[in-house]
């Protein structure tokens, strides 16, 4: 899975532009499969991408259009998918979202994720040995009935709280 170190993220969205461009030759926030959620008032930036979660909620697709690849990433069958939106609703962190008639979710760029090189802060790395281990159960309860964008925000707020505790502790020690 893609390992994200939010402490390093500057919020520049370079991962988004490079993801989007690699997949379509165009750039745009919604055309990316990794999306940086920015909570400006808290100084927090969190790249949100498929965590290949233990619960793999999205695979409960009513059309059975979603499967898991050997790398652990999510694969959507374009022939089976009828754009019902269940995957979007099922994912607890907004990592899958329908745009222009396609459910956008991280496919690890076929094994060479472009976001990793694009990020000059070194906030993104790939570890293929970790898959289906992270649990998103707690987020699932928190983000029921939210839009993908709202879910990403809720998730970033959760990660952000932890980051801020560390920052404040570090600052107190250095002062």
């Amino acid at each position: 899975m893609l390992i994200i170190d939010s402490y390093k993220c500057s919020g520049c969205r370079r991962c988004e532009t490079h993801c989007s461009f690699f997949h379509s030759g165009k750039t745009g926030h919604l055309g990316a499969r990794i999306k940086v959620e920015k909570i400006e008032i808290l100084g927090v930036d969190v790249p949100v991408v498929c965590h290949q979660c233990r619960e793999h909620y999205c695979t409960r697709c009513p059309q059975n259009a979603i499967s898991i690849t050997d790398r652990g990433s999510i694969e959507v069958s374009p022939t089976l998918c009828d754009l019902c939106g269940a995957c979007e609703a099922l994912c607890p962190i907004g990592a899958i979202e329908i745009y222009n008639g396609i459910p956008y979710v991280c496919d690890l760029c076929g094994g060479n994720p472009r976001c990793i090189d694009a990020c000059e802060m070194g906030a993104i790395s790939l570890d293929l040995s970790i898959k289906q281990t992270v649990s998103l159960e707690d987020m699932k309860k928190k983000t029921k009935k939210m839009s993908p964008s709202q879910k990403r925000c809720a998730y970033a707020e959760k990660i952000g709280q932890k980051m801020r505790e560390t920052w404040l502790k570090d600052r107190r020690e250095s002062c």
Binding site: K8, C12, T17, G43, D45, E120, W167, C175
Partner: peptide
């Protein structure tokens, strides 16, 4: 003494800005 992390504008590879915390 005050910077906690780099910040960047859209699609920047320098990320020259910073987030700071003072007392």
């Amino acid at each position: 003494q005050y910077k906690v992390k780099n910040k960047g504008c859209f699609n920047c590879n320098i990320n020259c800005s910073r987030y700071y915390i003072t007392p």
